[in-house]
Every structure is written in structure tokens, then in C-alpha cells.
């Protein structure tokens, strides 16, 4: 809670009738980023009601839209507050706002400012001109790393029960004591899923541009195979009898399928995927992931029954 700013008109510094009007979402982080970058200058900030959602997502969903903006302009009596007729929107509001309709309905000209608040002063000082780099969405290493904890925690929540289930069924079917064999085999089962999680939510985002392939699922399969290899090395089972060939194959399939699935899910966090593209890769990716996981589990059961 506390991530919402009340919609309406705000004064930053000592704005007058000539001061520029900036528009933003009522997501507190968006609002604070904007304020932070403008300290020492005078502005009007018009906050529209996006239900606490950031600019880009609210524009995509339509809550940061033409209608809401026009309504806010009227409610704030902007025509009386300033004597110019220009409002500056974040560029990423573009999917939701039709500039020509805003002009028609409110009389205000919409100018799209830069994507990042950090470029705003430069944009304004250049006479509301954005350089090409200000207009481009980036996806740098730092921007990807920031996403890692979010992805990891979300995946961990979903994977927790899988890890527990695999751990406590690891000893089933083996000879001797249940607990003895569980403690012998359980850690490897938990490690397999843990490795897949790290591969899919840490390695894939961080290494994204370096991994061959265009489809995220394809990248995930490659990283998943690498993680499987690491798993086999870590569990020291290349030459030992601790794991039979069925079980090894099972873990390779499970780790690879899980990593591919997590990589596929990273399409949503990335800044360069299209819906048509995601649908296209999912048409083959999702069946491959499901088939891999099912085959892996069947092999795992078979490996336990084989002894």
C-alpha cells in the first residue's frame, strides 16, 4: 500500500501561468521519479488516475487514456491555470492516448516527452526536442539485473511445492529405509529444481543478448541444457552408480523444460517482444516444455521402479 498518489494537479516549485505542464500516472514511483528529476524548477504536474499502475502498463490497458486525460484536464481547470495550451506526456503513454483527440476534446496540444524522466530537462531546454536515444526503450544489463529478484521470488513461490514434493518422494521405491534413501536422493531432486530456477530467472535475464537464438524458449533450452550438465557434474554422477541412466535423463529433461518455461515467461519483462512473436514461439514452446516435463517425470518414476 501507499503506492498511489491522489490524481489531480500538483505544483512543483512556484509555477505560474507560463510554466510547463507535465502529465504522469498516479503510481507513486512514476511520480517520485519525475519530481526527483525536476527539483529547482517550476512545473505543473497533472496526475491522472491509472489505479496506481505505471505509465506504460496503464497506457497498454487503457486506464492512461484519452478519456481519463481529458477528464483530468477539465477537473483541474487547466485552461484557467495556464495561458498556454501545451501538455507534455511521457512518450510511453502513447499506446493509450490519442494526441489529436485530446486536442479536439480539450484544446490542449499533446507533446510526447522522452521515455525517461532523466532526459526531461535536456528535452525541455532543447525546446521540446527529443534526441533519438530519448525515444528508445533500452534493456541494459543493469535494467535486466533489477528484474532478477522479482522473477526469482515469483518462480520460487510456484516451485516451492514442487521442490518439497520431489524431495519427499525421492526415497520412494528404493530399497531399505524410506528416510535413509530420502536423505540420500532428496537433496539432488531439490538441487535440480533449484538449478532450473537459477538458470531460468538469473542466467537467462543476465546473459540474454549473449544466448544464441531469437525465441526466448530456444534460449531457455540452451541454458537449461547447460544447467543440466552442471547438475550432473555437481552431483558427481558421471562415473558413479548413484544415479542410473533413466534418472539422469529424467533430470536433464525436467531441468531443461523448466528453464525453457521460465525463459519464455521472461518475454513479458523484456522490452522488445511483440504479442504476435510470443504467440508464435508459444505454439511450439509450450508443447515442448510440457512434453519434456511429463517425459522427465515418467522417466523419474521408471528409474525408481527399475530397482
Amino acid at each position: 500500500m501507499g503506492y498511489v498518489v491522489d490524481p489531480g494537479l500538483y505544483a512543483l516549485g512556484q509555477p505560474n501561468k507560463k510554466s510547463p505542464i507535465l502529465v504522469t500516472a498516479n503510481y507513486k514511483l512514476s511520480f517520485d521519479k519525475l519530481r526527483e528529476r525536476l527539483t529547482g524548477r517550476d512545473f505543473w504536474i497533472l496526475v491522472v488516475d491509472t489505479k496506481g499502475v505505471n505509465v506504460w502498463c496503464a497506457a497498454g490497458k487503457g486506464s492512461f487514456g484519452t478519456e481519463e486525460l481529458v477528464r483530468r484536464i477539465a477537473a483541474a481547470r487547466l485552461t484557467e491555470v495556464v495561458n498556454h495550451r501545451t501538455i507534455i506526456l511521457p512518450q510511453l503513454a502513447g499506446p493509450g492516448v490519442a494526441a489529436h483527440l485530446v486536442k479536439q476534446l480539450s484544446g490542449f496540444n499533446v507533446r510526447y516527452g522522452p521515455i525517461r524522466a532523466a532526459d526531461l530537462i535536456e528535452y525541455l531546454d532543447a525546446g521540446m526536442k527529443a534526441s533519438p536515444s530519448m525515444r528508445e526503450e533500452s534493456f541494459s544489463l543493469a535494467e535486466r539485473i533489477v528484474l532478477v529478484p522479482v522473477e526469482l521470488v515469483a518462480a520460487l513461490k510456484a516451485a516451492f511445492f514442487i521442490i518439497v514434493a520431489l524431495f519427499f518422494t525421492a526415497g520412494l521405491g528404493a530399497e531399505g529405509h524410506y528416510w535413509q534413501s530420502t536423505l540420500a536422493k532428496g537433496p539432488a531432486a531439490a538441487a535440480a529444481i533449484g538449478l532450473a530456477l537459477l538458470a531460468g530467472t538469473v542466467a537467462v535475464p543476465v546473459l540474454l543478448p549473449c544466448i544464441p537464438g531469437r525465441a526466448f524458449t530456444a534460449k531457455g533450452i540452451l541454458v537449461g541444457l547447460a544447467a543440466s550438465f552442471l547438475f550432473l557434474v555437481l552431483t558427481g554422477t558421471f562415473n558413479e552408480q548413484a544415479m542410473n541412466i533413466l534418472e539422469k535423463s529424467a533430470w536433464i529433461l525436467i531441468i531443461t523444460a523448466a528453464t525453457a518455461y521460465l525463459a519464455m515467461n521472461f518475454t513479458g519483462a523484456s522490452t522488445f517482444t511483440s504479442l504476435s512473436g510470443v504467440k508464435k514461439e508459444m505454439r511450439w514452446g509450450l508443447p515442448v516444455e510440457i512434453a519434456g516435463a511429463v517425459a522427465g517425470i515418467v522417466l523419474l518414476i521408471a528409474s525408481r521402479l527399475a530397482f
Partner: peptide
């Protein structure tokens, strides 16, 4: 990325795209 911003802001409807979010989830 099919965000649809160009279509939304074209005053003469010259741009068309099936817009959406490129998100598997």
C-alpha cells in the same frame, strides 16, 4: 513490439497493428 502507440496517434488512421503485450504469462 506491437504496442499500438503509432496507430493510436495517427490522425488519419494510416497505421494498423494488432496491438497487445508480448507476455507469455
Amino acid at each position: 513490439i506491437e504496442c499500438g502507440a503509432c496507430m493510436r496517434n495517427c490522425p488519419v488512421g494510416a497505421v494498423a497493428v494488432r496491438s497487445g503485450v508480448g507476455c507469455a504469462a
